[in-house]
Design a protein around this nucleic acid. Structure first.
Lengths: 130, 130
DNA sequence: CTGCGTGCAAATGCTTTGCAAAGAC
DNA sequence: GTCTTTGCAAAGCATTTGCACGCAG
């Protein structure tokens, strides 16, 4: 079942395309509301879900936080969260290996790496470390 | 303010000590209920929180999942989740480095590594990969 | 005894769902 | 015109909180 083209759906996709980083549902809402006034949060949830189901978005989950969403098709990568501004950035490349930590008899099929610290912007503007 | 010793609190600590792996609130509840019938979920939440505040427990968060809790004092380590049985295991040691993925100007202060796959038990009992 | 800790039930916060009206095709 | 999508409000879930009672110290 192909989703219909609506102003709301277009605004939601535009918000995610423009961001260049993973956005939370609330971030999508406030960004898309600049194009479609009165846009409801339920519509954002519904469209984000359908965009994930279609494979246009992928879910980015950080431990203990609400999910974020980014455009799919970026290949294998990981994320960095700034402790200061809270933004999540995409990292390119991947860590070496973790062969040395895998218990005998275990099979590793996927992995996730999350880095935290301070982004270039926060460092250069002299914000205190959050 | 030191917490009082109660049957409920003892049972909750015993459950976590006996597990040897991170437990969810529900897992703590069902395990501790074997010692204290009628134990309420709110009591588990309250005690787990206070044990974390005291530093006796640490929170283990996997993306998109409810928090788990494990005894503190184990030093730096990461976790492995079996896609088959869902259990979370502690890993010893740490990955090499991720210097090559850090953007210029960023400062990394913490990191998290999560591995997923199939544990030794599930592999040897021939369960299908989940 | 005094007061903290417990169990229950109500409240909370985020996400999902039901439904009538609006919009896409 | 028909059928999907939307916005609102209500429903769900996991977690937290308020309160009266019971147990620890």
């Amino acid at each position: 079942m192909q989703a219909k083209k609506t102003r709301q759906r277009d605004a939601i996709r535009a918000a995610l395309e423009a961001a260049g980083r993973p956005l939370s549902t609330e971030e999508v809402l406030s960004s898309a509301q600049r194009q479609v006034e009165g846009l409801g949060i339920a519509t954002v949830y519904r469209n984000v879900r359908s965009l994930v189901d279609e494979g246009w978005l992928v879910t980015v989950e950080l431990p203990g936080q609400s999910p974020r969403y980014e455009l799919s098709g970026k290949g294998h990568h990981h994320h960095f969260q700034c402790n200061c501004c809270g933004l999540v950035y995409e990292l390119h490349g991947c860590v070496g290996s973790f062969r040395n930590v895998i218990p005998r008899g275990f099979l590793v099929t996927e992995h996730e790496v999350l880095l935290y610290g301070m982004c270039g912007g926060c460092r250069s503007t002299g914000h205190a470390k959050g």
